[in-house]
Design a protein around this nucleic acid. Structure first.
Lengths: 151, 151
DNA sequence: GTACTTTTACTCGGATACCGTCTGTCCGAGTAATTATGG
DNA sequence: CCATAATTACTCGGACAGACGGTATCCGAGTAAAAGTAC
């Protein structure tokens, strides 16, 4: 369907929750996936992608879990997209034009590249902090974090 | 892989070829798919999508085929994208946020919507004419069109 | 030569199959805090 | 009380199954031009 994975939205949400954690505290992956309504084992794989990209830190062992690895102001929505969706572009030329015309580079690829850059610029313009600064932290979200955080 | 279909690039290419047709002439679908290197029967389904969106006109019967239904200056790249990929957005919220916060509308959906608008604006800014105006029409492309067009 | 029929070469639309990706599930291994145990 | 072992609750990572969309293929139906046929 040519659509962004739901895992992206879930990841943004998870990082939003993690941004409400006090220093040194973590949230177990299962608590996160339960809250978000995703399959626990699968969502942990998404969390690992976020960890591999240094957006969050994982703590193994008992009392383990996940926490932010950067300040919310340093985590752009684009970074989350990149971690989940990967680095490949929305449009990838299959060389249909090159196969006919020796015209390099392809004018369509240029246009699609410009469009994609414009798209990414918007995602780079907002961070977790700027996006959720007006989210009332005193709601059940904060309550959930307080009840499920460890140490 | 969250990528635009190859059918999109092929469709742009097909319309580019059709724009080289003289008035009243048509190109059979099989000639187009052969030139583009796509599966003939499947590519005809793409051509039908373009026809359903009034970008091209189809002529049934012997000596039938396809031709443009609008002037190349009136066919935006965005129109082709819409015809092939459909109207749904790149990002569709699964309501993960709404499920927790009564915060409507979702701030993430807003951001993604802005990004998508920006992306689409670029695709709306170019037409088949503007995109291919510097394409040398005297190449083997024009030759192919001349050899395969009907009536 | 004209009227009619047949053939031909297209488009149209449905049914189906293949394949890769996303999602979901299971299982074993590693890690660290807690608890239990033995002196 | 202290050192060590066992348990517990997490993360890590691979293997695998199901669902779905994009691509590909096949077939029959509709359409219109061309070719053939009858008078």
């Amino acid at each position: 369907m040519m659509q962004i994975k739901t895992g992206f939205e879930q990841s943004v949400y998870a990082i939003c929750l993690l941004s409400m954690l006090p220093e040194k505290a973590v949230l177990p992956g299962e608590a996160l996936s339960n809250q978000i309504g995703a399959s626990p084992t699968y969502f942990q794989k998404l969390l690992r992608k976020l960890a591999d990209n240094d957006l969050i830190a994982s703590v193994p062992g008992k009392k383990g879990g996940f926490k932010l690895n950067k300040k919310p102001s340093k985590i752009r929505i684009y970074d989350i997209f990149l971690a989940i969706e990967g680095m490949q572009t929305l449009y990838f030329s299959n060389g249909v034009f090159n196969h006919m015309t020796d015209h390099e580079p392809c004018v369509l690829s240029d246009l699609m590249g410009k469009a994609e850059s414009s798209w990414k610029d918007v995602l780079k313009s907002e961070t977790i902090e700027s996006l959720f600064k007006d989210l009332d932290k005193e709601t059940n979200l904060q309550q959930f974090v307080n009840e499920n955080m460890v140490v």
